[in-house]
């Protein structure tokens, strides 16, 4: 890796009550690269994303941002670092319109009052720069958008905030072929702008198409952390389902020791 990591997690543990969900997880995200996070249902992918985002802060472990240790205990902390999350259960308010959603929690103000002019123009600008053509109006309420359009809005939000790291939790899970295409293009465009992208996906075709690296989770442990060009699809399937694969070195805390 020529670039220094943007975000690095070391030895992250997380449990919900007595249920241990993440064990000593290491994760690294590089600028300008798409890192794919793969793993079976319940492997802990969403929990890991929420730990990064400060929704469910980790119980222990180190959180390094641009090489420096930071503490992230709330979504605000993560946002302040430039980390943007597109959640699997999309976090949009259906009763608000696109502009209102994109600026939610970070509204632009003009004195006491909201600066709708600036917000509407910037939202329109960002959607245009990402070549989003499918929305009729930026003042459309989100409840009137299709799944793909909502996903687009959620991703465009991260572009709006010039985020350094964008985490996408299964952004294409509910989408059709054409919409998936658009979202993957959008993901690639974000990475090409220098953003560090973490893409969670079940679909290995998608992963092999856009990702530069793959981190595989198996029952809450990292089974492998490899470059896409060094693995085959079959090996990744093996990693997801059994936690190990011949010819791929297990990371320092082997999943095999479960």
């Amino acid at each position: 890796m020529s670039d220094a990591p943007l975000l690095a997690l070391r030895g992250i543990n997380k449990s919900f009550g007595v249920v241990n969900v993440l064990y000593d997880v290491d994760l690294t995200i590089y600028p300008g690269q798409v890192t794919a996070l793969v793993g079976d249902n319940g492997a802990g992918k969403s929990t890991l994303v929420k730990a990064i985002a400060g929704i469910y802060p980790a119980d222990s472990g180190d959180y390094l941002f641009e090489g420096k240790p930071v503490s992230v205990h709330s979504p605000k902390d993560a946002a302040a670092l430039g980390i943007e999350v597109v959640y699997q259960d999309l976090a949009l308010c259906e009763n608000l319109d696109i502009v209102e959603n994109m600026f939610l929690g970070r509204e632009k103000k003009n004195g006491l009052f909201l600066d709708e002019t600036t917000m509407e123009s910037s939202a329109r600008e960002v959607l245009a720069s990402l070549s989003v053509r499918t929305v009729k109006s930026v003042r459309q309420s989100v409840s009137s958008l299709s799944g793909g359009q909502r996903q687009t809005v959620a991703i465009a939000k991260s572009a709006l905030w010039k985020s350094k790291v964008v985490l996408l939790d299964e952004p294409t899970a509910a989408l059709g072929v054409a919409q998936t295409r658009q979202v993957l293009d959008l993901v690639r465009r974000l990475a090409d702008q220098g953003v560090g992208v973490l893409l969670i996906s079940h679909n290995l075709t998608d992963v092999f198409e856009v990702a530069d690296r793959i981190t595989a989770l198996y029952l809450g442990r990292v089974a492998a952390d490899v470059a896409v060009k060094d693995v085959t699809s079959t090996q990744v399937v093996e990693l997801i389902t059994t936690g190990h694969s011949d010819g791929i070195a297990a990371p320092s805390t082997p999943a095999a020791s479960v």
Partner: peptide, 28 residues
């Protein structure tokens, strides 16, 4: 009318009513 439609606080009231979890994740 001004408070609900033109201030951040008002916007956040609507957001919480629409999707409280989304509002929380947005840092409200």
């Amino acid at each position: 009318t001004l408070i609900l439609s033109r201030t951040t606080w008002g916007r956040h009231v609507y957001a919480i009513g629409g999707n409280a979890e989304a509002a929380r994740r947005a840092g409200i």
